[in-house]
């Protein structure tokens, strides 16, 4: 029984250590463009896409390019690997996951937040009135 206890403890310790390293490697923190351009780490930035600047898909590189303003109002070009995210147009805010590279934010993923998608607002009601 003692052997198994020791074996058990060793397994747990190994598991925790491996877990800790895997964890600190894959942790993605919230950041802003300034911090992201200083440390070049993978992070996520929350903000709004700037609607009066271009937002287009580039078929030669298969990337979607748009401009985004973070919560401190600093602007940066965001290049997303992939197509325009679903519901991008109506997004109230977006979260871009990736890192800063050569002066732009290279995003692996962009999440869109659209509260109105799930819940109607009073304004919508007026439009659908009799």
């Amino acid at each position: 029984m003692k052997k198994t206890t020791i074996f058990g403890i060793v397994t747990i310790v190994v598991f925790l250590v491996v877990g800790f390293f895997a964890f600190s490697e894959s942790k993605i923190e919230y950041s802003d463009f300034q911090k992201a351009s200083e440390n070049h780490k993978t992070c996520q930035v929350k903000g709004n896409w700037i609607k009066d600047k271009e937002a287009k898909f580039d078929a030669t590189t298969n990337q979607f390019v748009f401009y985004m303003k973070d919560e401190n109002n600093s602007e940066m070009k965001v290049v997303l690997d992939g197509a325009r995210p679903n519901n991008f147009e109506m997004a109230e805010s977006v979260v871009a996951k990736g890192k800063v590279k050569d002066g732009y934010f290279h995003a692996k993923e962009v999440l869109t937040k659209c509260p109105s998608k799930y819940e109607g607002k009073g304004e919508n009601l007026k439009q659908s009135g009799i």
């Binding site: 993605i28 923190e29 993978t42």
Partner: peptide, 10 residues
Amino acid sequence: ISKGTVDAAF
């Protein structure tokens, strides 16, 4: 727990 998420690779 903290401000951030975990990558799917984890």
